[in-house]
Amino acid sequence: MIWAAVLLGSLGCYLEKLFGFILPPTLLDRPMIRSVAALLPIAMLSALVAVQTFGAGQSLVIDARLAGVVVAVVALLLRAPFLAVVLAAAITAAVLRAFGFAA
């Protein structure tokens, strides 16, 4: 099942790129296509942040992940690089759990 997702997902993402080189550039003249494709990452990445911070199956919970994300926001405001942001979040959650402050 994971392999199917990996291969099918990869094939689709590659074809999206390839079609861009094959289809006529006049497609770019359609403002609706342009704006939706540009806005999709904003809506969906934000949804992923929310679900991965609070989601636990079908329930919403507050746990050490939230503290990690708050620290990530601070790191981003300080213009930290990607790896530092991700590490800061992981370390925050791991430390809170190690000392029993959060689930």
Binding site: M1, G20, F21, L28, L45
Partner: peptide, 24 residues
């Protein structure tokens, strides 16, 4: 798997747009 694949495709749609722009 289905939701995972669809999410990946939707997020990748912008690459097609980049290709359209870069092609010329």
């Amino acid at each position: 798997a289905i939701a995972a694949v669809l999410t990946a495709w939707l997020l990748g749609a912008r690459n097609g747009l980049y290709a359209l722009h870069l092609a010329p």
